[in-house]
Structures are given as structure tokens and as C-alpha cells.
């Protein structure tokens, strides 16, 4: 029992990563109806850049190796910058043409192109093997009875909660947040009502880049290890969480992300590590067939042409 409980705790912590990445997905899909496949690579990029800056310092000899916090900051900054580059190349130049079935997929296809570029640049630069990323509290644990909660886990959880809280406040109470929500509801109407869509779209990408970055940082702190394949293996599972919870919903991302995290740690515990992929993605397939709108989602989002 205590073992299972321990797995649930670990699952929630892993879920914090998924929640953060799923929120990044949700922002672009909820507001722009854009399934952005660069999100997992940006998550991975953050962690790898953080590792590289802690190992070697900034490029071109701009600095000596950075300490862990600065390195993570560097990683997040790079993710945000890369996210803006993606915005430039996917949304800036997209013109509506005929409105047929695959036209709306143009940004999606572009994002697949970026996925290939980022993934493979990182592989070439840093290799595919795992690298250690250490923080001063890497090996510190707290014990509650038989349960172990590590300091990095707690730190990550606080970070995830802070970003989720911050994001929901932002969307709810600021002018930018209101503009974002109105675009999500009805892009044409918000254009008429004086929302400058052209200036708001980059904000979406900055936020989703920031979320990817924070998720990458959480992962690096929590697991002390980063690798080029983590975008595909970890970041992509956030998609499962997002769909499970419901596309475009913040609560959906939170609940779905945690569910996927717990399902993952429990299936490792019960059936072994090899089964995770089949179980998580099988779960998503079933969810898509049975309840595509997810737990909190409303069906309208993303249902349009693609």
C-alpha cells in the first residue's frame, strides 16, 4: 500500500511536468486552433540548453559555465526565443487561401518541420545519450513515515503550481488575458472590437514557450537527467493529458496531466517500464474514441477544418 501511495506521489510530480507542457499545448490550440508540435521539442531544448550552459557556459565563450539556476534561465529564454521564431514562420506568413480541408493544417505542418529541425540539431550538437543535470539539492529528501518526497520534487511542484496560478490570473484579470480569451471565442469579432490580433499572437507563443521552458526546468531539476529524446518520450505524453482533460481547458490540462503522470508511474510499478507507452497512448486512443471532448472540454475547439 505504502508503495502504491509512493507511486501516486511520484506520479503527481511527473504529472506536474505534463500539466505544464499540456498547458502550453492548450494555449495555442485553445486560442489559435493550432496543434503546435514544436512544444515537445521546446521542452527538450530548454533542458538541453540548460545542461549545456551549466557544462560549458554560454556559446562563443561569452561566459564560464553557469550555475544551475542561471543555466535554467538560459534554457527558458532560448525556448521563448525559439517559440517566437516558430510564430514568425508559421503564423506571420499564413494567408487564407481557399479554406479547404488541409489549408488550416499549414501551421501544424510547419511545426512538424520545426520539430525535425530542433530535435535533430540537438542530437547533432549534444548527442543522444543522457546528461546529468545537478542542483545543490539533487539528493535531498524528506520522509513522512514511509513516504519519500524529494526536495527537487517539492521545488518542482511549487514551480508548476506558481506558473499555473500565474497563467490563470493572467487570463482572467489582465487586458491581455481578456484579449486572448476573446480571440479564442471568436477571432473575427475580436478583430472588429479592436483587439490587435497581430500583436496578441506573439504573446501566445511567448507564454507557451515559457510554459515549455518551465516544464523543461522542472524535469531537469526533478530527474537530474536530460536527453535529446525527452521531447518525444516525455513531452508528447502531455498531448495525452491534454486530450484526456479536454482541449482548450486549463482545468482539463491539470487533471489530464496528473492522470497521465499517475497512470504512468503506477503502470511502471505494476507492469514494468516497457508497458508505459502502450498504456498511455492506448488510453488516449480510447479517450479519443469514447469522449473526444475530454473531461472538461467543449467539443467546438479544434473541431473546425484542419
Amino acid at each position: 500500500m505504502i508503495l502504491v501511495l509512493q507511486q501516486v506521489i511520484n506520479g503527481v510530480m511527473l504529472g506536474a511536468v505534463y500539466v505544464t507542457v499540456a498547458l502550453a499545448f492548450n494555449l495555442t490550440i485553445g486560442i489559435l486552433n493550432f496543434l503546435n508540435f514544436t512544444i515537445p521539442p521546446l521542452f527538450m531544448l530548454t533542458a538541453m540548453v540548460a545542461w549545456a550552459s551549466a557544462q560549458y557556459g554560454l556559446p562563443f565563450g561569452l561566459s564560464s559555465p553557469l550555475n544551475w539556476a542561471a543555466a535554467l534561465g538560459d534554457g527558458i529564454a532560448v525556448a521563448i526565443a525559439a517559440s517566437l521564431v516558430v510564430e514568425r514562420m508559421t503564423f506571420r506568413y499564413m494567408k487564407a487561401r481557399y479554406g479547404d480541408a488541409t489549408e488550416h493544417a499549414i501551421p501544424l505542418v510547419s511545426s512538424l518541420g520545426f520539430l525535425l529541425i530542433i530535435e535533430n540539431l540537438v542530437r547533432m550538437a549534444y548527442g543522444t545519450e543522457p546528461h546529468r543535470f545537478t542542483t545543490p539539492f539533487t539528493n535531498m529528501n524528506l520522509r513522512f513515515g514511509g513516504l519519500i518526497v524529494s526536495i527537487p520534487q517539492l521545488f518542482s511542484l511549487v514551480l508548476a503550481l506558481a506558473i499555473v496560478f500565474g497563467l490563470s490570473r493572467l487570463l482572467k484579470y489582465t487586458r491581455i488575458g481578456r484579449a486572448l480569451r476573446s480571440i479564442a471565442e471568436n477571432p473575427d469579432a475580436s478583430l472588429l472590437m479592436g483587439v490587435d490580433v497581430g500583436r496578441i499572437v506573439p504573446v501566445v507563443f511567448v507564454l507557451s514557450g515559457l510554459l515549455c521552458g518551465v516544464a523543461g526546468a522542472i524535469f531537469a531539476i526533478n530527474y537530474g537527467q536530460v536527453y535529446a529524446g525527452m521531447g518525444n518520450e516525455v513531452g508528447n505524453k502531455a498531448i495525452a493529458g491534454m486530450v484526456l482533460g479536454g482541449l482548450g481547458s486549463i482545468w482539463g490540462a491539470i487533471v489530464g496531466g496528473v492522470i497521465v503522470g499517475v497512470v504512468e508511474t503506477l503502470s511502471i510499478h505494476l507492469f514494468g517500464g516497457d508497458t508505459v507507452q502502450a498504456i498511455v497512448w492506448g488510453l488516449l486512443l480510447v479517450a479519443l474514441i469514447v469522449r473526444p471532448q475530454g473531461i472538461f472540454g467543449h467539443h467546438a475547439i479544434g473541431k473546425g477544418k484542419l
Binding site: A278, G282, P292, G302, K303
Partner: peptide, 22 residues
């Protein structure tokens, strides 16, 4: 369902298949 859900479903299917084969 159509659109983005189909893309997601085929993506999930691909991951699921390799997960099962392993």
C-alpha cells in the same frame, strides 16, 4: 470527429503500436 482529433488519433495510434510491439 475530424480535424485536429484525427491528427491526434493517428499520432496516438502510432505511439500505441510501437508501445505494443515492444
Amino acid at each position: 470527429t475530424k480535424g485536429v482529433y484525427l491528427v491526434l488519433a493517428t499520432f496516438a495510434f502510432a505511439q500505441f503500436v510501437s508501445g505494443v510491439i515492444i
